[in-house]
């Protein structure tokens, strides 16, 4: 069993390497390409695994630690895998004054995770965002890249219920359960 898991991890790592290499083909070996590369790789893999960062450092001929320093400096980059659905709670001024922090509390309570974490079943990841510029719809939560306006604790429950129903609808359709052992 443990062997299986190791094998799967190795396969996954090889896959990350492969896909990073594919993306790197489109870029020149200039340091100024670092951020666009990281954005593209994260866009493809969902996050920046260690293997991808090492690959990028080698490609740009720069120390590994410098890639890591850029990745951790900017809020956009993440080091852990995302969930199936992304929840981004806006904490801009307007959202804050209209109760964005209460909305964040509600998400935390329901998903039982802290910001920048992913639920153990990898269904949801929770994060905050400084401002998405929809201040007139405050408080805003960006759910799967779609800004949702006026998200108060009751709407949090409503949105989660929507996902729940969707999952139930898909189940009888014969979708294989993911083995998250």
């Amino acid at each position: 069993m443990a062997l299986n898991k190791d094998k799967r991890m190795a396969e996954e790592q090889a896959e990350f390497k492969q896909q990073t290499k594919q993306i790197l083909k489109r870029f020149g070996r200039k340091r100024s390409n670092l951020i666009p590369i990281l954005q593209k790789v994260q866009g493809k893999l969902g996050y920046l695994p260690r293997e991808a960062m090492l690959e990028i450092a080698e490609f740009l001929n720069m120390p590994d630690i410098d890639v890591y320093s850029v990745v951790t400096f900017y809020n956009q980059f993440r080091l852990n895998p995302p969930g199936k659905h992304s929840i981004r709670v806006c904490l801009g001024t307007a959202c804050h004054m209209k109760g964005g922090y209460i909305t964040l509390d509600a998400w935390k309570r329901r998903l039982e995770i802290e910001p920048s974490e992913t639920t153990p079943d990898r269904e949801f990841d929770l994060d905050t965002v400084a401002c998405v510029g929809c201040c007139t719809m405050a408080p805003v939560t960006v759910v799967d890249n779609k800004p949702q306006g006026k998200v108060e604790p009751t709407k949090v429950d409503g949105l989660l219920l929507g996902f729940e129903l969707e999952r139930k609808k898909q189940k009888p359709g014969g979708q294989l359960p993911t083995d998250e052992a």
Partner: peptide, 25 residues
């Protein structure tokens, strides 16, 4: 176009230049 990666300080012009060059802002 260049996409900023979500650091408020990059609105400051010298930090913005640093990030365009691929460094922390």
């Amino acid at each position: 176009t260049f996409q900023g990666s979500g650091a408020f300080v990059c609105g400051e012009e010298t930090a913005l230049i640093e990030s365009l060059e691929g460094k922390p802002g």
